[in-house]
């Protein structure tokens, strides 16, 4: 398979970026999207050019490192997966693919497709925890949590913190990220005592970081 890639290149923070076109030849349908980029990069390095910087780590959809907007959709055309779980068989041979970074004021670009997502960490630091010291916890079975409640909390807790919600939101809001953490902890009895303070602190932090406001889409 062959593809034409329009990739955003930007030397560093605050510099002017632009799209550069690359040809990806000799791609097999079983290759993952990132392996396809790897092979493009291997070609660039061998020519002494700087490879396209992009982020990835676990390559199994859980660490939340990968962050590409592919043809206008964060993490690409499939639902419920991250970029690293996207395979080239999903694209027709010869397709033109546009690759952009997450775009938001709160996520300044570091280089090419790599953005700085520390804003999300700072939102977490504002209140995304239960203030409990190590040691002295009561037996785990003292707190009973109904199965449904635990499952709903787990749904919210599954957020991988990749920032795709910010990238996808028309307003670059981090509301889904915040809501996931707030719901996860508020649904459990352990998280209840701090729930009000937590919501306020995290929302204030979100505003401080320059995220947009929630558009209430659902």
């Amino acid at each position: 398979m062959k593809f034409t890639l329009n990739i955003w290149r930007q030397k560093g923070p605050g510099e002017k970026g632009r799209f550069v076109t690359y040809e990806a030849g000799d791609v097999s349908s079983g290759m993952s999207f990132l392996e396809m980029l790897d092979s493009v990069n291997q070609g660039l390095i061998a020519k002494g050019e700087e490879p396209v910087a992009f982020e990835q780590d676990c390559r199994e959809g859980i660490c939340g490192s990968c962050s590409l907007v592919i043809n206008g959709i964060p993490h690409g055309p499939d639902r419920g997966i991250t970029t690293c779980q996207l395979y080239m068989r999903r694209f027709p041979d010869g397709a033109v693919i546009r690759i952009e970074p997450w775009r938001a004021r709160a996520f300044p670009i570091i280089k090419d497709l790599v953005v700085d997502r520390r804003a999300l960490d700072r939102v977490m630091q504002a209140g995304g925890y239960i203030s409990v010291n190590t040691g002295g916890a009561v037996d785990g079975n003292v707190l009973l949590v109904s199965k449904d409640q635990a499952e709903t909390a787990m749904d919210a807790a599954s957020c991988i913190g990749c920032g795709a919600c910010v990238a996808a939101c028309k307003n670059a809001s981090a509301m889904l990220f915040v809501a996931a953490k707030v719901s996860h902890l508020a649904l459990l009895p352990q998280g209840k005592p701090e729930r009000t303070r937590r919501v306020r602190a995290m929302l204030e932090a979100m505003d401080r970081e320059g995220f947009g406001s929630c558009g209430n889409h659902r």
Partner: peptide, 22 residues
């Protein structure tokens, strides 16, 4: 055993039985 207690206190949504136990 302490680890489990600590993790529950931190709000880790471990799988539960219908009775609410771990």
């Amino acid at each position: 055993t302490q680890i489990i207690d600590q993790c529950v206190a931190l709000g880790i949504p471990f799988a539960r039985e219908y009775g609410g136990q771990l």
